[in-house]
Write a protein that binds this DNA or RNA. Structure first.
Lengths: 247, 247
DNA sequence: CGGAGGGTTGAGATTCATCAACGCGTGTGG
DNA sequence: CCACACGCGTTGATGAATCTCAACCCTCCG
């Protein structure tokens, strides 16, 4: 088997391995296995024990919860270099979430045992986990708040804003990273509602054409910013931000 | 100043200090400060930097997010021995949440600096944080799923179920830990809806009289259980659980 | 060519929030 | 001691927002 070296490019290294020494990285990778899966394959069922951490090498995956009627609540949508189940391993019980591929995917599974020993022996690894889990948790808080006190329009707007900030400010053109119905469910609305919201956004200077979002100007999404998100914006301390806020 | 020794009773020790050696605990406590606050006092605003971890010694506190209209989305409700802001410290930005007392409260503040040095020097402390944060995250997942795919009745039912499981099975009588309107907002509904739900629950064998919940029998709340919560139930592997599930 | 899946649009149904009124217990000041 | 205000909770009537259902279009692909 050819040795697995997916992280030669530092820019694409997953956060999970930040600052990990080559020897320690080797200890993790030598125990991990690569898996390939078709679309819509369930990798873990809610209520079962998590086998370890999944790192997405290629493809896309979602984590979700399901009720008795088969309705799904999407918790996270993951693409390449994202990881899941880190948190579940430390919850000390059966998994509260189901993990399912969206499209055909290639994954790395880091077994539970390795994770749990590494976390006790490698402080950097422990801190990485802590940072990842807290980031997820922050995201979850935004999701909770979105459900209670945001309209569908605001939910989509904020989602687009985060994508815009990830992509960088100069970028006025974004691609939707997932199918619309997938995003719609992640944002807690039906595909119909999502579609109608896109029409409203068009009038506000956010034009969605097929899978491409085009912003009229750099402030088109400022409506949807909030107190803790401004920190991610390059203009947040400039006077121009006042323009955003006053929109 | 009299030395601070709140944790002589092992049963009441907060999870944050599990398995921490006396010397290491001393390092934490010697840098921490006790604060007293009136009701409805804001301890930290969304968008500001977190000063450290708050440990509730007495009273009650909530964490929340607020929108431009002043509507609140409650993230967590905390009582004695609960902690908050552990996660926020590792998110690496301004706080996504506001922290506010509910009633008159006495708190211990563990400054950020202490937390961040201890976590690198004390693996047990790091793992405790990881466990706490993941527990919060799990809770957040339940909240997300509740908003998407649960009715108000199911939300209240599940909330009562978790309280029932915390209190122990033999306990058919529970006290609401917070005012009804506080719980209602936490569950993402209006006080009016909460009140109407309680009436429905009465017909299902869950009688709420003032602040006391009385269960008709041990199975009254089994309706509201789900795949990952059964693990917390003492009957989950017995045949009687089938009775629950088939309700 | 025909079928399947994704997306959009319109009409109707449903659910929960809103608004208003009321009851009740408590604390306060005349 | 009573009158009153206030906070909390409940109840009923109304309305708005989103989901549901159905039809349709489009593209892709066998």
């Amino acid at each position: 088997m050819p040795r697995f070296h997916p992280f030669m490019d530092e820019n694409k290294k997953p956060q999970l391995f930040d600052h990990i020494s080559p020897e320690n990285l080797e200890k993790i990778l030598s125990c991990s296995v690569i898996q390939e899966h078709d679309a819509n394959k369930i990798l873990l069922n809610q209520g079962d024990a998590a086998p370890g951490i999944f790192l997405i090498l290629e493809g896309s995956v979602k984590t979700l919860r399901m009720n008795a009627d088969g309705e799904e609540a999407t918790i996270r949508l993951l693409g390449a270099n994202d990881t899941c189940l880190e948190a579940v391993l430390f919850m000390g019980g059966p998994s509260p979430i189901t993990v399912q591929t969206i499209g055909k995917s290639r994954l790395l599974l880091i077994p539970e045992k390795v994770v749990k020993t590494r976390v006790l022996e490698d402080n950097e690894f422990a801190v990485n986990l802590l940072r990842i889990v807290t980031r997820h948790y922050k995201n979850a808080m935004h999701q909770i708040d979105a459900m209670h006190i945001k309209s569908p329009l605001q939910r989509v707007g904020y989602y687009f804003l985060t994508k815009h900030l990830e992509a960088g400010h100069e970028n006025f053109e974004l691609k939707l990273p997932f199918k619309k119905q997938i995003i719609a469910n992640y944002l807690g609305m039906t595909p119909e509602t999502f579609s109608r919201v896109l029409k409203q956004l068009k009038e506000l200077g956010v034009d969605t054409d097929d899978n491409t979002i085009r912003l009229k100007d750099a402030y088109a999404l400022c409506h949807f910013c909030d107190a803790d998100t401004t920190a991610l914006c390059q203009r947040h301390d400039k006077s121009s931000c006042q323009v955003c806020m006053s929109h």
